[in-house]
Computed example of a mutant assay.
Amino acid sequence: MSSLKTKPAKTAPAKVVLAAAAADIVLILAFAAIGRDAHHREEPVLGVLLTAWPFLAGAALGWIAARAWRTPLSVLRAGVPAWLGSVVAGMLLRALTGQTVVLPFIIVATIALAVFLLGYRLLVAGVARFRSK
């Protein structure tokens, strides 16, 4: 009987994982801050955190489901799961906690979070491709 040897899954360097996670967090916080500012909401810091936490939790779920720490800058393997997790789980968590979930907000959040969470990864990929030529 032969033993099956499996290679351990490669993980990106810790500084890349931390930078990508930090970028996702900062961009989701920026999304929440921009939205709150556009609607002239009170309590800037606490309010931003209240708005952002469901999206942050959803992005974390996306990271875990996709094991995004392996390729945290990949648009498909990390960006899409973080984006979809932030939108889908974020909206579900908002609904479950009595926060507003209406179609225009869902549309805006879907587009804005796509631009933020996929956008910087696309920029990083473009710069890497440019540098390799």
Rank of each mutant, 00 (worst) to 15 (best):
S3K: 12
L4K: 11
T6V: 13
T6D: 06
K7Y: 10
K7I: 10
P8S: 09
P8D: 08
T11P: 01
A12W: 09
A20C: 08
D24L: 10
I25W: 11
L29F: 13
A33V: 08
I34M: 10
G35D: 01
D37T: 15
A38N: 11
R41M: 12
R41F: 07
R41A: 14
E43L: 14
E43Q: 15
P44V: 14
L46K: 13
G47W: 10
L49R: 04
L49G: 12
T51I: 11
T51Q: 05
L56A: 02
A59N: 03
L61R: 01
G62E: 00
A65C: 07
R67N: 03
A68Y: 03
A68I: 11
R70F: 06
L76I: 12
R77A: 12
P81V: 04
A82R: 05
G85I: 02
V87G: 00
V87T: 07
V88F: 14
A89L: 13
M91E: 11
L93W: 14
A95D: 09
G98E: 02
G98A: 06
G98I: 03
V102N: 10
L103W: 15
T110I: 09
I111R: 07
L113W: 11
L113G: 02
V115W: 14
L117T: 11
Y120Q: 00
Y120L: 00
A125C: 02
G126F: 08
G126C: 06
V127W: 09
R129N: 10
S132D: 07
S132E: 14
K133W: 13
